Simulated scan of single mutants.
Amino acid sequence: MPLPKIEDARNLNDEDLQEQIVSVKRELFQLRFQKGTRQLEKPHQFKHARHRLAQLMTVERERQLQQKDEG
């Protein structure tokens, strides 16, 4: 499975962006829980989830700065 593209995150509206951030944070929590209980089967999922979270938070910050410059 290839890493997600940042353009996918940029195409989301603000509400969907927030929902995705919460979803990915929840997924990371579940992955850490599985790792702690030695039930994690696919460790590469950490990389994908962290990468996606970084993209989403970058887009969120870009939008915050854009609103600040406009306001």
Rank of each mutant, 00 (worst) to 15 (best):
M1N: 04
P2F: 11
P2R: 13
L3M: 11
L3S: 02
L3G: 00
P4Y: 09
P4D: 07
P4C: 07
I6A: 07
E7A: 06
E7D: 08
D8M: 09
A9M: 10
N13I: 11
D14Q: 07
D14W: 04
D16K: 13
L17Y: 07
L17M: 03
Q18E: 09
E19Y: 05
E19V: 05
Q20G: 02
I21C: 03
V22M: 07
V22P: 00
V22F: 09
V24K: 04
V24N: 03
E27M: 04
L28K: 08
L28M: 03
F29P: 00
Q30F: 08
Q30P: 00
L31D: 04
L31M: 05
L31N: 06
Q34F: 13
K35C: 12
K35M: 12
G36D: 15
T37H: 15
T37G: 11
T37W: 12
Q39T: 13
L40E: 08
K42M: 10
K42F: 14
H44M: 11
H44K: 11
Q45G: 01
K47N: 13
K47S: 15
H48S: 12
A49G: 08
A49R: 12
R50Q: 15
R50A: 11
R50F: 10
R50P: 03
H51P: 06
L53V: 00
A54E: 03
A54G: 06
A54T: 03
Q55C: 10
L56K: 01
L56H: 02
L56F: 04
M57E: 10
T58Y: 05
V59R: 00
V59Q: 01
V59T: 01
V59I: 04
V59K: 00
E60H: 02
E60T: 00
R63L: 06
R63M: 05
Q64Y: 11
Q64L: 13
L65Q: 12
D69M: 14
D69W: 08
E70A: 14
G71W: 12
